Amino acid sequence: MTEEKIRIFNVQKYNMYDGPGVRTIIFFQGCPLRCKWCANPEGLEKKPRIMFKENLCENCGDCVNVCPVGKHEMDIVTGKHKINSEINCIGCGKCEDTCYESAIKIMGEDKSISEIMDIIEEDRIFYEMSGGGVTLGGGEVLMQPEGAINLLKACKSSGFNTAIETCGYTTKEIILEAGKYVDLFLFDLKHINSEEHLKWTGVRNERILENLDGLMENGFNVQIRMPLLKGVNSEKEDIKNIGKLLEKYKNYENFKGIDLLPYHKMGVNKYIQLGMKYPLEGDPSLTDNELENIEEWIKEYELPVKVVKH
């Protein structure tokens, strides 16, 4: 019988930010949101993506010769390598294998649950020493619900602590079923206003807030994560409205507090390598003083909160 495959685009070991202890993060490909500040644009679409570092390319044409679908071309005017955006990459990896300068990297590969579990198992000793485990991230984990739930089951059967990072945009049935095998949800709250949420992420937030309430009322452990950007969601009114929303959970044992995640520019170069335009204009970074103000506004609601800087 063919084993179930999950499409992932990265594995990150020795992570200390996304859940307790030392963790391995498995990045699932595909996301229903299009946040304008997304730091992992290579994980937005479920199809394989090519990241191309033009500064490393020797324009040798080897990738053109091996690509079975004509994704790679040599510009007849400049003689330089270019990628045809009209043709979908099939993820065969031949171009990456033949590029001796490592200018090409294919993002997106299908791995079986047993293959992923082998990777996770390599660092069991670090999980046990630190109280760590496995975090599923993305993209959006619950865009591949069957694979995510089965991988979570396998992790729990092996004794691993589990966490998932989620935007919460899925069905209540899926998120509650996943919750049976999740020790901690790292749940994004990007904007309290649905119209603004639509403007900045491409979807409204009603479903997200309903799923948050479903997790809280059913006793699943939830840690709120708030990405913060000046001019997007950092105004006092925005923060206080989130405080009012979360205030009702402050005495729930399964409410694990709020992480404030300041905007960073670590994903900007990825857009260039993917041939995409970065959606945000200007610099929406917040000063330390502004972050302290936001932290204090939330504390007025007696909610546990901290700033997390990567």
Rank of each mutant, 00 (worst) to 15 (best):
T2L: 12
E4D: 13
K5Y: 10
K13T: 15
K13A: 10
D18K: 07
D18A: 05
V22C: 15
Q29C: 10
P41H: 05
K46I: 14
N55E: 13
L56I: 02
G61F: 02
C63N: 09
N65T: 12
K71H: 14
T78R: 08
K82F: 12
N88F: 03
C92S: 13
K94Y: 10
K94W: 00
C95R: 08
T98P: 09
I106V: 15
G108V: 13
K111N: 06
K111E: 08
I113C: 06
I113K: 08
E115H: 12
I116A: 11
I120T: 08
E121I: 02
E122V: 14
D123L: 00
R124E: 09
Y127L: 03
E128F: 02
E128T: 15
M129I: 15
G132N: 11
V141E: 06
V141L: 04
L142A: 03
Q144P: 14
P145M: 04
N150Y: 00
K153G: 10
C155V: 14
K156C: 11
F160D: 13
G168V: 11
T171E: 01
I175D: 04
E177M: 10
Y181H: 15
D183Y: 05
F185I: 07
L198K: 13
V203E: 08
R204N: 08
E206W: 00
L209E: 07
G214E: 01
M216G: 04
G219Y: 01
F220P: 05
N221E: 01
I224C: 11
S234Q: 02
E235C: 08
K236V: 07
I239V: 14
I242C: 11
Y249H: 06
Y249T: 07
N251D: 15
E253D: 12
G257P: 14
G257H: 06
D259G: 03
Y263D: 05
K265T: 14
G267A: 01
I272Y: 06
G275N: 09
Y278S: 04
D283E: 05
P284Q: 03
E290A: 03
E296R: 11
E300G: 07
E300Y: 01
E302Y: 06
E302H: 09
L303E: 04
V307H: 06
